[in-house]
Amino acid sequence: MPILESTYKPPFFFKNGFIATVYSGLFRSVSLKQDRERITLSDGDFLDLDWSYSKEKSKALIILLHGLEGHGQRPYMTGTAKHFNTNGIDAICVNFRGCSGENNLYYRSYHSGFTDDLQAVIQHAISKKGYTKIYLKGISLGANIILKYLGEHSNIPEEVKAGVAVSVPVDLHGSCKELHKLKNKPFHDRFLKDLVTHLKEKQLRFPNELSLNAVKNIKTLIEFDNVYTSKAHGFKDALDYYEKCSSLQFLPNIKIPALIINALNDSFLSPECYPVKEAKQTPDVYLEMPNHGGHAGFIAKNNLYYNEIRALEFCSKFSK
């Protein structure tokens, strides 16, 4: 599809990508009542799903996937859920394995290309809950999962109508290299601290899988992916993981409407993360590249974010 012209105009102070990113991650607050449901997966592990509902009974549902080290109560999740609830659509904020406040059962957990759990949630929503219209939205890591899912599967349920991917690192290695640059050191170090803290907990539970010394020697995100993410999930190393799980290669196969919103001042994204060629050559891939927004920082008015407004607009076009 043609590249979409963005109409996003942030408040003056939030034109700075760093400020927009930090404010959205640390200071935004959204009030939303959620009900938690735990589902058992085919391998015996579990997922915690945080549900919120529209006032009227609905057969339409949006499934939301968070980013690295996120969870179902992050404002970028609840903000979207609340906006869709207000407009007659139920929502699930998915907590990836180990992200709901309780450790998952196995050494493995989640990663940027693991689509099996998304597929399980979709099937649960259709077969157990009876939803007939399902929309998907992800932020960052969760967005990569959605695009990969839409492009790698040929048997996507007909109930899945559209997908939205926001601040998505479609080239994982490129994004990783950006995160290791000096400009992103505060973000890199925050991610790494949280990841290593959780990995130490895993090491205590699975000492035969990983030594404490190996964990202590992790100094960068790529080292984390070399030591844990790749090995725990069947990849040779971090580069093999990035290569096989980047959604960029799956975009040409997408046959369900998918909107990508990547800000041009997102410091997490490399040039390869703006898939202009793929969007122009793929009828169902829509690419919007606002000048501003940082990483998931599309601040608008009344505590609504531009990407949340656009997600509802886009999904509503494919509601039949």
Rank of each mutant, 00 (worst) to 15 (best):
N16G: 00
E201P: 01
I126P: 10
L136W: 06
N184A: 11
I222A: 03
R205M: 13
V22H: 06
F318H: 14
S230A: 15
K161M: 12
E272R: 11
R97C: 05
F13V: 10
I222V: 13
N87H: 15
Y135T: 03
D171P: 03
L61C: 08
Y274L: 03
T78K: 08
Y305N: 13
E223M: 04
V170W: 08
L141E: 06
D189Q: 14
V196T: 09
L118I: 05
T197L: 11
S100V: 02
K133G: 07
C273L: 06
G293Q: 06
A143N: 04
T132C: 07
N302H: 15
A81S: 12
R28L: 04
E288M: 14
E308N: 12
G174P: 09
G88W: 10
A279L: 10
G98H: 01
G101N: 03
E152D: 08
I62S: 07
I260C: 08
V22N: 01
M289V: 02
E158V: 11
F12E: 00
I134D: 10
N213D: 15
I3S: 07
Y110R: 00
N217Y: 05
L64W: 09
D237G: 11
I299G: 05
T7K: 14
K231I: 09
D194S: 15
F27T: 00
K161W: 14
V30R: 12
K129H: 11
F187Q: 02
K244W: 05
Q203L: 04
G113E: 00
Q249N: 05
